[in-house]
Design a protein around this nucleic acid. Structure first.
Lengths: 225, 225
DNA sequence: CTCCCACCGTGACAAAAGTCATCGCCGAAC
DNA sequence: GTTCGGCGATGACTTTTGTCACGGTGGGAG
């Protein structure tokens, strides 16, 4: 017997407006699949078509260049959905998805989901909401990439991390410099140098991968120029 | 008497699935407004909420930095819609819209349109389609910005223009270097220099603003490195 | 015809980004 | 304890990007 995924679907924003009964029905159409950490879930250009939902774990969504350089677009966690765009325009995936942790995805047939959206416009509106959110974030990324230096993007990211933390707390960089580089759209060395420079200037303190920001405002000011 | 805008609405992809009668109904709720060339339709951060439709003319959608530099996100023409994201999440506009030509926009009340999407899920699906398209384009932009030099982006743009032309034809640059810079996310001088360099290398021929590409493949190859 | 003015082109720098190679350190495996 | 491998730091350069300042030009307004 396959387990019921209704409980998992309940945590999916896309399905926020559905009743438990409705979730049960959907859950019966869902197929689970596991991925090892580092596994490629799908690649840019590949044909998509189904809706994927993160049941557990995290996925990196990124774009890859021929040179091997990568740019992180987002990280999707439990409850997030992937590949909605492909579901609706039936086009290929426009990015690559790689399991950041051990990962379980639920797959829902594309045409089934499309139909479901027609039958349940609330769900369609949620899809719109999710896409809208992505669009906003992506525009932010574009802005950072065109207007800010690597330094600026790094500072912005540190400030973002700091916002999720109690003020003054030391934050652990979960990623290594290579991953940070992918996030910021640059290369390892520049991350290293810029962290070093920020440290040298006293704007951050660092020991190992633990960062403290002695003066948030000073860092913020730095961002404006 | 206000004119009927049903004919105009017919050309809007969002409403592609609606009958003429339905369009007539919608048309009655629409308010037109004119803008001079160069006029700011809305600014980033401003509160939105209504759906805007390009009745005639063109709008530039762009993001602006504090320094005055700009990055073009898209150009919307007759039949395109603006501000869908704000309609559905009721957030502020995430970009600035500026009339590129004399412009007439139709405005449709946000909550009315949201309701309409619930009543007519086909319309909601079209919204999803439009947002999906934007997302794809924007990801392409992100890729260009992170992986390509100004030169590369310029070449890519020239090739894109060339694709819309009969092969071998000379293409007119409709934009001046300043506007090209905004499109490519850089500054005027770099556009000038890079065009000059491409010319010097024989990859393009230029007289005034008329560009010919003697060897498309040569230019394409150039892009890969 | 002449005078502007909007645009283009460029030289000269300064700063940032990216590449390559090398060194050192820490922690896990043996 | 020793070894090895992954990761971070960094020096030395090259290339690209961006800034400032000027000089030139062509086309429209008067």
């Amino acid at each position: 017997m396959s387990p019921s995924f209704a409980a998992s679907l309940r945590r999916v924003p896309l399905f926020a407006n559905l009743s438990l009964d409705q979730l049960d029905v959907l859950a019966q159409h869902v197929v689970a699949r596991n991925y090892q950490q580092g596994a490629v879930v799908f690649s840019e250009g590949e044909a998509g078509g189904d809706l994927l939902i993160v049941h557990s774990g995290q996925v990196r969504i990124l774009r890859t260049a021929a040179t091997g350089r990568q740019q992180l677009l987002s990280i999707e966690r439990e409850g997030s959905s992937l590949g909605e765009v492909s579901v609706f325009d039936r086009g290929p995936y426009s990015a690559t998805a790689i399991a950041l942790t051990p990962l379980t995805l639920l797959r829902l047939d594309g045409s089934l989901f499309r139909n479901y959206c027609v039958q349940h416009p609330e769900v369609a509106l949620q899809v719109i909401g999710v896409l809208g959110h992505r669009l906003r974030r992506l525009r932010g990324l574009v802005e950072q990439l065109t207007f800010q230096s690597v330094r600026g993007r790094l500072i912005a990211y540190l400030l973002e991390l700091a916002r999720e933390q109690p003020a003054g707390a030391t934050l652990r960089l979960a990623e290594n410099n290579e991953e940070l580089a992918v996030r910021l759209g640059t290369v390892r060395e520049l991350v290293s140098r810029n962290l070093g420079r920020l440290h040298g200037e006293g704007l951050i303190r660092m020991q190992r991968r633990a960062v403290t920001i002695p003066d948030l405002d000073a860092l913020r000011t730095e961002l404006e120029k």
